[in-house]
Amino acid sequence: MTVTPLAAHASDRPVPAFRGRIGRDARSGHYAVPGRYRLHLSTACPDGLRIAVAHSLLGRDTACPVTLLPAVPDSPDGGHSALRSLYEASAHRYTGPAVAPVLSDDWSGRIVSTHAPDIMRDLARRFATGGPSLYPCGAESEIEAVERMCAQGVEQAAQRAGSADGGPADREAALGVLLDALGALERWLVGRTYMIRDDVTAADVELWVALVQLDTVHRNHLDASAVQRIADHPTLWAYARRLTTHPAFGTHLDLGGIERRHHDRCHGLEAAGAAVQILDWAAHAAR
């Protein structure tokens, strides 16, 4: 198998090293057998949080058990020492960090995938039915559009808006992109309970995690005025609060772990917006 070593701390969505898929039947190398596969996740990581929420919504505890990892990776290269043996068994002379998330095959002791979107789709489609349809028929393009908006319009724009490397004009432009995206989401959610259907889908998982990151991570590097403008989307934040009360969402919210992970990875200056919390996530999180 050809792999691409991951750059430590490069981004929250680095190029995945492994892109195996779970197939429909025994004709594929990796086919769906309950108990054969295992997830290795840190819910302090955005991708790990997305997968954990989807896993709970689908009720895949028996079909695909989860091993939880520490919020802060314990290897100097930014990887998890607990995953090192899996990486070394899966790629000859692998030299990159052993990062999460990982979907592994307990039969072979090797990695199937480290690509979060593929893992979520295979969890939803390749095991026995149960739970909501996270990828309903005909909704793939809508879900992908939400994924792009969350990645580019929310998370990347928020990161640029709070970056110490950019000048004031660059930060203001990025803030404009972020506010435009939030405004579009605000208007879309008026009168709706969920993003694209009458029940929760992967689009809701994606947006909820993006909003968690915006308020618990990116807010720390924005000024108070910017945070107040971000908070001025009542429908959007009411939606985030409502999902947080859902057990499949709120029970996985490790606020302390997110904070520790952020401080370990980011050495930027804290801004005034750090003191302006948008949601009291802990108060609403389902337990």
Rank of each mutant, 00 (worst) to 15 (best):
L41P: 08
Y194A: 06
A26F: 04
H252S: 08
L134C: 07
D105C: 12
L236K: 00
V200R: 04
T244E: 08
A203W: 08
A8Q: 09
G256H: 13
R121S: 13
G153V: 09
L83G: 04
T114F: 05
R27L: 11
G131N: 07
R60Y: 03
R242P: 02
I258P: 01
P101F: 05
D74K: 08
G273P: 01
D198I: 06
R261W: 09
V66T: 13
S81R: 13
G183A: 10
G166C: 02
V72S: 10
R13A: 14
R121W: 11
W107C: 01
I143H: 04
H252V: 02
E186L: 01
G153W: 00
A240N: 04
T193F: 02
D198C: 08
A7F: 06
W188E: 03
E155F: 05
S104M: 09
A145R: 15
A161M: 07
A89Y: 02
A240G: 05
G167V: 04
H92E: 12
A91I: 11
A231S: 07
S28V: 07
R110L: 09
L189E: 03
D25I: 01
D199S: 15
L269C: 04
P34C: 05
P16N: 14
T62Q: 10
D106T: 15
D223N: 12
A282Q: 14
C137F: 15
Q228Y: 01
Q159I: 10
C137D: 15
L39F: 07
G256L: 09
T62I: 09
R13H: 13
L243V: 02
V154Q: 02
V212P: 01
R125M: 11
A8M: 03
T235F: 00
A275E: 09
R125G: 14
R60C: 03
A128P: 11
A275G: 10
T114W: 04
D25T: 10
S85H: 13
R84K: 09
A248W: 03
G29S: 10
D165I: 02
L68E: 12
Y94P: 09
A71C: 09
L49G: 03
W107I: 01
D223Y: 02
E259R: 13
T235D: 03
L255C: 12
T235A: 05
R171K: 03
P234H: 05
R110M: 12
D254R: 08
G176W: 03
H263K: 13
R229C: 01
P132M: 07
L207E: 06
G250Y: 02
A224D: 10
H267P: 05
L175Q: 07
G176Y: 04
Q152L: 15
V276A: 00
V227Q: 00
L211E: 09
A169L: 00
L189A: 03
S163K: 02
S104E: 12
L175G: 05
A7I: 14
A210D: 11
V154R: 00
R171G: 00
G48T: 14
H80V: 09
Y194R: 13
R21L: 15
P117M: 15
A89Q: 11
P76W: 01
Y94W: 09
A8H: 07
A10C: 06
P34Q: 02
V53N: 02
D204P: 13
P34M: 01
S75G: 03
E147Q: 15
